[in-house]
Design a protein around this nucleic acid. Structure first.
Lengths: 123, 123, 123, 123
DNA sequence: GTGGTCTAGACCACC
DNA sequence: GTGGTCTAGACCACG
């Protein structure tokens, strides 16, 4: 499944992009599989269809999804590779956050404690 | 010292606030010490002075800094305590980022690897 | 300058992207130069700001432009290179159109005549 | 024969219409010849039969094809003339694309190079 | 039903 | 002033 946190500082459309990339990276969606429909996703996430459409469009531009008029959206053949390079982006953002946390005064053991705790609630 | 990443998604003024709080939490700045000058900081960080001024102003409102007549702005007596509660905010943001990274497709061992690597370059 | 044909089948936002890339490829805009502001462009082109924003955002994602909060948008250092690879896209689209024209019944000399005529009105 | 590019921005049904008009303009299909069967075309092009049916229906409305009782659909007597006027449309689209390519940053010699290359692979 | 584009207007944050 | 995001609703074209 795919969850979103509407109160996060991370823009909703990026959360959706990340979520879809995650599903592919984990193998829950494989090349050729139909991606969730824009309107459907919008409804389940309680989000404006435009917001989902934007996320999907950008994934199409990146080559992760393949959208065909009237047929729906499909995971692209090269998606795993693209999603993999997308992971670099995610990793980059994470390291950014780690640096910010350090600069904000957290010690490395604080950071590791946070990892452990977050891991407990979302294993 | 205090470093900023101008291309981060985190607003510059928040980076500055975080950085100053970090200096206090680590004891590099103690109560009564003069806060770094706005113009000086702006120059070394290559940032708009308004942005620094805003960060300082907000820290004063939070009680981390103290604007004393004649002395300029100094670190408040209660700053370490305040900075400590600021840490909760930093921690919260970090955990948010960890969750986003997970949703973006990173495994927990990916996360731990990222922690190790970031730790190596910024110990 | 930058012109748009609102009645073209080509989506407005793509026309804008193409136009900006063209300005860079031609050297009219160099790395570091400020790109036209979103609201300004929207006004001169008589187009909704959202549409321009979308074009700009996508060029930012491609690495052609560099947008900084509150400061405006600037041509990225790597823009000429990126714009160059963008040219491949333009070239690809053109060849697609040429093939379509052939399939639609035009002879190659028809095609060449069309090139000559278009060249005359827009040298 | 008749080829289609399913990933082109040009709608499939228009590609089919263009292709059929092209066959007529080139004389590969003459007045009175039976139009290709919808199901057969759909199968060879790997396209939804509805899409082919739509193309055919519109060509009938335009007078390029003729639905004769008992004979099925055949090329209309006036088809070559109609196909000829259809060429104007094709030509118009081509000139639009040329203009877009120019605005996208291609020089006229780039355009001519593209023509030469496309001509080589699809003479 | 599907995706795609555009407009309109609101709100936010940064400089 | 700048860019950025989101919502809402309309319209189009394709299958």
């Amino acid at each position: 499944m795919l969850r979103i946190d509407p109160r996060s500082a991370v823009p909703i459309n990026e959360q959706i992009k990340g979520g879809l990339r995650g599903l592919i990276a984990r193998g829950a969606l494989k090349p050729g599989d139909p991606a969730p429909s824009i309107r459907g996703l919008a409804e389940t996430l309680k989000v404006n269809p435009n917001t989902v459409a934007r996320a999907v469009r950008e994934l199409v531009l990146e080559g992760v999804l393949d959208a065909r008029r009237g047929e729906g959206t499909v995971v692209a053949d090269s998606a795993p590779r693209m999603a993999h390079s997308g992971l670099d982006e995610v990793r980059g953002r994470l390291r950014e956050s780690l640096r910010q946390a350090r600069r904000g005064g957290l010690s490395w053991s604080d950071v590791e404690a946070a990892v452990r705790e977050t891991r407990k609630e979302e294993p």
